[in-house]
């Protein structure tokens, strides 16, 4: 085997089965060693950079919760000034809260200015680092600590914020979703994204066993079920046009919901399941996900 540099070392402190930990490794291994990572505050930064250790075999900077888009803009501008931008990838990465909520303004600025940067969102659908609070990417009816279920609540009352659509509306050349369940697709998308000049956005679905309440060994199973039910559509937009989707033979949403404690309360609430099935059906229709026999 050829000797390769380790870009993401074992020994970090993520939970067993952490989808984000797996996806982060897949991303950097696809991007390669000539990559600078700018990371928002969140689980990933915490479990990979506890001083005096670091999991990263590439240059890595963490500044604050919401500013990866702006810090990366500065990194990229500095590389341009140095004449080193060619051949160096810049990745700005964050969790769903750091992307969809607190970090969205800086990302919007970065996309609008056209920096040659790939932004990656590790979407585990809540603020996990602080204890499973609801974010703009938390799905409908999910039970989190700030959208708890109760006599008058089925959990999070809002739909996921359409961040890929928001990214696309900036006119950026590449927007895609991916999943930790489909490694090759994820890595191909990272490689494709960095081959394109300008701003790119990839949102990766990454189960969090702690927050979603499933066994660590079930991470890939859960992630796959999200896709197979149509609840997490996998698509790719190149220059604003839908360039590809992952086709599915749609399964009922219960097949996904029943795997996770965060949706447990719904199994006795058929009218809620119906609403969630509608979300999946809409996705299937909108993106043409159904595999025609």
């Amino acid at each position: 085997m050829p000797e390769t540099k380790i870009l993401y070392n074992p020994g970090h402190t993520a939970c067993g089965g952490c989808g984000q930990a797996i996806a982060a490794r897949l991303v950097i291994e696809a991007a390669g060693e000539n990559t600078i990572i700018v990371n928002n505050t969140g689980c990933l930064e915490v479990f990979t950079t506890k001083y005096p250790e670091s999991a990263w075999g590439v240059p890595f900077i963490h500044s604050l919760f919401e500013n990866a888009g702006a810090v990366a803009s500065g990194v990229e501008s500095a590389l341009k000034f140095l004449g080193k931008k060619e051949g160096t990838n810049v990745i700005a990465q964050a969790g769903d809260g750091g992307t969809a909520d607190i970090g969205l303004q800086a990302l919007s600025g970065m996309w609008e200015r056209g920096h040659d940067i790939l932004s990656v969102c590790y979407d585990n659908e809540a603020y996990m680092n602080t204890g499973i609070q609801r974010s703009g990417l938390t799905p409908f009816d999910s039970n989190t600590t700030t959208s708890p279920t109760g006599k008058e609540s089925f959990g999070n009352p809002k739909m996921k914020k359409p961040v890929p659509e928001i990214a696309r509306a900036h006119g950026i050349p590449y927007v895609a979703t991916a999943s930790v369940a489909f490694v090759r697709d994820l890595q191909n998308k990272v490689k494709k994204a960095i081959s394109i000049k300008g701003p790119k956005y990839i949102q990766i679905h990454v189960p969090c066993p702690l927050g979603w309440r499933h066994e660590g060994a079930q991470t890939v199973t859960v992630a796959r079920a999200a896709i197979e039910t149509g609840l997490y559509p996998i698509f790719e937009y190149v220059n604003g046009e839908l360039a590809g989707v992952q086709k599915i033979k749609p399964k009922p949403v219960e097949e996904y919901l029943k795997l996770q404690g965060r949706f447990k309360h719904l199994l006795k609430a058929p009218e809620q399941i119906k609403k969630i099935q509608e979300i999946a059906d809409n996705n299937i229709k909108k993106y043409g996900l159904k595999l025609e026999a």
């Binding site: 600078i36 900077i61 702006a70 810090v71 803009s73 501008s77 000034f81 800086a106 600025g109």
Partner: peptide, 28 residues
């Protein structure tokens, strides 16, 4: 002046952008 001038969307991002630039080894 041979420099990259970055028109940002807020002061928070202005400070963050120059942070990133200095961290990359460039006077800002």
């Amino acid at each position: 002046l041979k420099a990259e001038f970055v028109n940002v969307e807020s002061e928070h991002s202005a400070a963050s952008a120059v942070l990133g630039a200095v961290a990359t080894g460039v006077r800002a």
